[in-house]
């Protein structure tokens, strides 16, 4: 099952490599990974998605917690949560295609953020599923380049991941 694990770690050199190394070492898979400092500059927040069974995810969270630099973590998929991923997609757009692409982008609430004679760059945010769906819808056009940020997320309601 797909899991979104969000981790607060010390914002120190080497901390990220320990997390990534742990996954490689114990053959857990990472599908997406994003990391950035938080409003408290001594902390980084790392969000990763992985596919794992319940027992595997229990081991993953325990092993992550064992890392000295990991302060706290939450499996967002345990409860209601909000997840977002950002995608930038550059597509070939010329002639009659341009209007069609614009319409599709509007349906998905994407924004065209860069325009040339022959190409559009579209920005789209949403769940990973939504981004996948948009990509499928774009398959008719020529997709030139895609970049995705990986998933970020937090719990719904008043629950927070903080120290």
């Amino acid at each position: 099952m797909r899991r979104i694990i969000s981790v607060l770690i010390e914002n120190e050199a080497g901390a990220l490599s320990r997390v990534v190394g742990l996954f490689a070492q114990r053959s857990y898979n990472i599908e997406t990974l994003t990391v950035a400092p938080t409003e408290d500059e001594t902390l980084s927040r790392l969000t990763l998605t992985t596919s794992a069974s319940d027992t595997q995810v229990e081991q993953i969270t325990k092993q992550l917690n064992k890392l000295i630099e990991v302060i706290k973590l939450v499996d967002l998929t345990d409860g209601e949560h909000i997840e977002r991923e950002l995608m930038l997609i550059k597509v070939k757009a010329s002639g009659a295609q341009r209007a069609e692409i614009k319409r599709t982008a509007d349906i998905f609430r994407g924004q065209i953020v860069d325009v040339t004679h022959n190409a559009y760059t579209i920005q789209l945010a949403g769940t990973s599923d939504k981004l996948d769906a948009f990509l499928r819808a774009m398959s008719e056009s020529v997709v030139l380049e895609v970049v995705r940020s990986g998933v970020s997320g937090l719990s719904r309601g008043e629950k927070v991941l903080a120290i």
Binding site: T55, Q59, K62, Q63, N65, K66
Partner: peptide, 11 residues
């Protein structure tokens, strides 16, 4: 002492 040892190999 190590929570990760628990239910790692045997539940």
């Amino acid at each position: 002492i190590d929570p990760a040892s628990i239910s790692k190999n045997v539940t």
